[in-house]
Design a protein around this nucleic acid. Structure first.
Lengths: 269, 269
DNA sequence: CTGTTTCGGTTCATATACTGAACCAGTGTT
DNA sequence: AACACTGGTTCAGTATATGAACCGAAACAG
């Protein structure tokens, strides 16, 4: 592994729950030597990716990220394009929704919104979606490039006792996602949380991300599932359109056979 | 120089004017070998810091930056805190304004706003402020940590024929900034652009950034300069307050002697 | 006070992982 | 068909990253 990767990995250790990390703690989290970690932090600090809080000597994310994040959204306005369909999705389903973006073989969280409708909500605060254990992740494997399956198999972390742990069990999930046109997770990532996800595509014709709805298991009736599926299909179509892509015919077909009442819009004109 | 630094440097080659860069072009910009640049891009892509546009094979900033930028602003809400004073500053001066943030020895651009008042505006689109050639940069050297002067001397790039090119000429500018409590650039960065800058501090008591106003030289009368100075002092006080800092007494004193009409607020209570 | 355990940061010999010239293959131009 | 561009790959040589051991400071216990 390149030293640059190792340095960049340190950035993913920060989270909303732990926005400041000291040197020693970071060594433990990164499972690396103190001297190495220190040098990496020096590099990141010089580049403005982290900064040191003078008082506590802790490190936190740096100002350059704001700059670069702003420029990313300026060049590829994905966040802006997904907001409106996502708001509708929250309204219609009354559940927690996520939009994720695929880059390389990693599925990054982009936006998440919670509905105020219920007091018990699915709160999932992650920065990257595990490919094997989430509806969005399964979506990415099922409809993304072929190498996604191998990438998913590289990390079979067990989140619950329902998390798929072998290539075979994952393959089953992927196959069912391919036939239904949607990812589905029943307690695979968190117990008592079920979720559904639909793929999103961009102008390259490749899978660009996923949109998902997470609900608590006790509420997850067939009626709600049907509502969510219909709303997800709409959201996926709209976000895909705003990102400059089109839904592949195979997926429209899968949706139509699974949800015959929800006809594909005529986009041939 | 570490290889990680070299990889991170590539990110600073992207700009609003040039949001997509191909491999060969990036080699030229970075003045590095093609193989090395390629590997660096691979690392950055795997980390989600850049992504490759499949159609053109060009690279652009990646989705991870959005994620990290969001987290940075969540942990250190500097941008939000500077917006309001900055809007006032634009209103009062009718000129282009910038807020920059110091990290390490680099001064990063944070926000910039243009006034709709004049058709000719100072348009300065940079991601980092040269320490020797800008009002904000001089501010950082004058009021920041001691090592800033050495850092400034490491890069004496000549932007115009008025850009200071020697430690001695820079020293003169810094000295006058220290006595007036403000940075001042007269065509040092761009010909026909004059600007003034005031320092910003945070809870560490250290300099945290600078706020600046840039005007076209033909408009830069003593009256306008006076208006700008007064407005800058107000903006600097407000942003500093919102970032949890206080203006050092020495600077308040410098402002008061330079602008006797603009009394320091009584903050002793 | 002294012994112990943290912490952030530094050193230096070792060897690992980075470098870049040269090389492909593909594409568009002349 | 020769050329000038791309993006991407290979491999020997060496520059650069590594981590055990070390340091001084600070916090805590006895």
């Amino acid at each position: 592994m390149s030293s640059a990767s190792k340095a960049l990995e340190l950035l993913s250790l920060f989270s909303e729950a732990q926005p400041e990390i000291g040197l020693s703690q970071m060594c433990r989290l990164a499972k690396r030597d103190k001297a190495t970690t220190y040098r990496h932090l020096q590099v990141l600090e010089k580049a403005g990716f982290v900064e040191q809080v003078v008082a506590s000597k802790n490190y936190r994310l740096g100002p350059a990220l704001l700059q670069l994040g702003r420029m990313r959204e300026a060049t590829v306005p994905r966040k802006a394009g997904a907001e409106t369909p996502l708001a509708t999705l929250v309204d219609v389903t009354g559940e927690t929704v996520h939009v994720s973006v695929l880059s390389g073989s990693t599925l990054f969280a982009l936006i998440s919104r919670e509905s105020p409708k219920h007091s018990t909500r699915a709160v999932i605060d992650i920065t990257t979606f595990p490919l094997h254990a989430t509806a969005s992740g399964n979506c990415a494997v099922a409809f993304g490039p072929d190498e996604m399956f191998a990438a998913a198999c590289e990390n079979f972390e067990a989140f619950t006792d329902l998390t798929p742990m072998t290539p075979e069990s994952l393959e089953t999930l992927i196959a069912s996602a391919r036939t239904s046109g949607m990812g589905r997770s029943v307690g695979c990532f968190e117990k008592e949380i079920n979720s559904l996800a639909a793929p999103i595509f961009d102008q390259t014709g490749q899978l660009a991300g996923a949109v998902s709805v997470a609900s608590v298991a006790s509420r997850f009736t067939p009626e709600l599932e049907s509502i969510i599926k219909t709303a997800l299909i709409t959201a996926s179509r709209e976000i895909t359109k705003s990102w400059g892509g089109t839904i592949p015919p195979a997926i429209e077909k899968a949706w139509n056979s699974a949800m015959p009442s929800h006809q594909e819009l005529d986009t041939s004109s």
